[in-house]
C-alpha cells in the first residue's frame, strides 16, 4: 500500500508567526502514529493540513500517493478515504443518529444500509441508548464517543484522532483503545492520533513523534522514544516537567 502521508518542508504561518515547520515526515501505512507535544505546538495544525482542511504556505504534501494540488475533485476523492475526530468533537444540530449518519448520507448510501451501519457504530461505542438524543445535550465524553462512531462509520483508510479520549473515563477509554487497535488490525486503517496521555501513546503507538514550536524534535518507534529519548526536551516532557 502506498505511503499515506509524505511531508516535505511544510510551513504554515498565521500572519508573521510561523506555527508549523516540518522538514521531513513520512507516515507508513497501517501504522498507529502518535503525535505528542505541548499546547500550541502545532499538533492540530499539522493534522488539519494532512486532512486537507488547511492549505500549507510552503512545501510539498503527498497524500495516499498523490501530490496534493488542492483541486476540488482531488480533495473530495482523498478526503473520502479519511475521517477525523476533531479536538472539540463538534456536533451538528440534531440527533446522535443524524450525526453518525452524516458521512454515510454524504456518500448517498441507502437508508437501510445507513441504519444498519449507524446501529453497529453506536453499539461499538456503547451509545445505542442515545440514538435519538439531542447531540448538543451530550456530556463531553459522550460527545467524543459519538464523534468516534461518526468518524469510523465511513470506514476510512486513514483516521485522525485529535485527543479522542481526553474526556473519557478510564473504562470507556480502554474500550475505545481496544476498538482503535482492532480497527487498525482488521481494516489496516492508518491511525494518526494526537494525545496528551503518555500511557495511551505508549499502549497504542507503533511510532511516536514529538513536536514543539511547530518543529519535530524527535521521532521514532514508541519503544525508542519512551525508553531512550535522545533529546533533552523530549525527556523533560516525558518526565512531566514544564520546560517550554
Amino acid at each position: 500500500m502506498k505511503t499515506p502521508f509524505k511531508l516535505h518542508n511544510i510551513v504554515k504561518r498565521y500572519g508573521e508567526r510561523e506555527v508549523l515547520n516540518i522538514d521531513q515526515l513520512s507516515i507508513p501505512a497501517g501504522n498507529i502514529y502518535t503525535i505528542l507535544g505541548p499546547n500550541g505546538s502545532g499538533k492540530s495544525t499539522l493534522l488539519r493540513i494532512m486532512a486537507l482542511l488547511l492549505v500549507n504556505d510552503e512545501g510539498q504534501l503527498e497524500v495516499l500517493g498523490e501530490k496534493v494540488i488542492w483541486q476540488k475533485g482531488q480533495l473530495l476523492r482523498l478526503r473520502r478515504q479519511m475521517s477525523m475526530v476533531t479536538q472539540t468533537s463538534f456536533m451538528f444540530q440534531g440527533s446522535v443518529y443524524y450525526n453518525v449518519a452524516y458521512g454515510l448520507r454524504a456518500r448517498q448510501m441507502s437508508a437501510k444500509k445507513v441504519r444498519r451501519q449507524v446501529g453497529e457504530m453506536l453499539e461499538m461505542v456503547g451509545m445505542t441508548a442515545y440514538r435519538d438524543a439531542d447531540a448538543r445535550t451530550l456530556s463531553g465524553g459522550e460527545r467524543q464517543k459519538v464523534a468516534i462512531a461518526r468518524a469510523l462509520a465511513v470506514n476510512p483508510r486513514v483516521l485522525f484522532l485529535d485527543e479522542p479520549t481526553s474526556n473519557i473515563d478510564l473504562a470507556s477509554a480502554t474500550d475505545i483503545e481496544n476498538h482503535i487497535r482492532q480497527i487498525n488490525k482488521q481494516r489496516k486503517t492508518t491511525i494518526i492520533m494526537v494525545t496528551h496521555n503518555l500511557f495511551q501513546a505508549r499502549r497504542l503507538a507503533d511510532e511516536v513523534m514529538f513536536i514543539s514550536d511547530g518543529r519535530i524534535i524527535e521521532k521514532g518507534t514508541a519503544e525508542e522514544l519512551f525508553s531512550q529519548p535522545r533529546d533533552e526536551r523530549t525527556a523533560a516532557f516525558l518526565r512531566g516537567e514544564t520546560v517550554f
Partner: peptide, 24 residues
C-alpha cells in the same frame, strides 16, 4: 470553522458542506 471541518472530514462535497453550514 469546525462546522466546515467536520463536514469535510466526513466526506461532504463542497455543496453538502455549504448546506450543512446553512443548516447550522
Amino acid at each position: 470553522q469546525e462546522v466546515y471541518d467536520t463536514a469535510a472530514t466526513l466526506g461532504a462535497t463542497r455543496r453538502q458542506a455549504t448546506l450543512s453550514i446553512m443548516r447550522e
